[in-house]
Amino acid sequence: MIVAIVACEIGFWVLLIAGLAARYLLKARRLSTALLLSVPLVDVALLVFSIIDLRSGGESSVGHGLAAVYLGVSVAFGHQMLSWADRRFAHRFAGGPPPVRLTGRERAAHERRMWVRHVIAYVIAGLIFLLFSKLGGDASQWALFRLWTIILVIDGIVSFSYTVRRPISSAKER
């Protein structure tokens, strides 16, 4: 199962980089679009592989739990990751504007939005965990989900700390 996850992660980055290279280096807009639209197929392949593995007698395992986490994160953050890579690729190879560094309230709002995406990833993965548990008959992957719950709470505290903390420079001025 771990091999499938690693293969999907490699497939994600290969398709993403190939799509961006086709867009900015080769100026092949249609090829770029086809490659970038095929990136979500990596997630579909992992989901199908996991279901086939469980339906053919495989027991639900931590590997399946990691696949659920991967899928949840990919669905919740996938578009943003594509946009992030696109902006940097455009800056590096096509004279696009440099990436913007967020500060102050914009950074705080961004961190809160990222935490909401994290919650969405958590919920999606939880549903996939449930599906895998029903198909595999074993709940061993839920230990991973409990760990993720702790990580989600810590991420929430950190994300919202950007909203309430005072910048260091203004603290020194007082």
Rank of each mutant, 00 (worst) to 15 (best):
M1F: 10
M1I: 08
M1H: 12
V3Y: 10
V6I: 02
C8F: 11
I10D: 13
G11F: 07
L15T: 09
L16V: 02
I17N: 09
G19C: 11
A21E: 07
L25D: 07
K27G: 04
R30L: 04
R30N: 04
L31F: 08
A34R: 13
L37Q: 13
L37I: 15
S38M: 12
V39T: 13
P40C: 12
V42L: 10
V42E: 07
A45E: 13
L46Q: 09
L47M: 13
L47Y: 11
L47E: 10
L47G: 13
F49A: 12
F49S: 11
S50M: 15
S50C: 14
I51Y: 04
L54D: 04
G57D: 10
G58R: 05
E59I: 05
S60N: 06
S60H: 02
S61Q: 01
G63L: 02
G65C: 06
G65D: 04
L66M: 11
A68N: 06
Y70F: 06
L71T: 01
L71Y: 02
G72Y: 13
V73A: 05
V73N: 03
S74L: 01
A76L: 05
G78D: 00
H79V: 01
Q80F: 11
M81T: 06
L82S: 06
W84R: 01
A85W: 05
R87S: 02
F89Y: 12
A90C: 09
A94F: 01
G95A: 15
G95P: 15
P99N: 03
V100Y: 01
V100H: 12
R101N: 05
L102Q: 00
E106W: 02
E106Y: 03
E106N: 06
R107G: 04
R107W: 06
R112W: 07
W115R: 02
V116C: 00
R117F: 00
H118P: 09
Y122V: 00
Y122D: 00
V123P: 01
V123T: 05
A125K: 05
A125V: 03
G126N: 07
L127V: 06
I128M: 13
L130E: 12
L130R: 12
K134E: 13
L135R: 01
G136N: 04
D138A: 11
S140P: 13
W142M: 10
L144Q: 08
L147Q: 02
T149D: 08
T149H: 09
T149C: 08
I150S: 08
I151A: 14
I151K: 10
L152T: 13
V153R: 00
I154N: 02
G156L: 09
V158M: 06
V158R: 02
S159G: 08
T163H: 05
T163R: 05
V164T: 10
R165D: 15
R166A: 15
R166D: 14
P167N: 11
I168C: 15
S170W: 07
S170Q: 10
A171K: 15
A171G: 13
E173Y: 03
R174Y: 05
R174S: 07
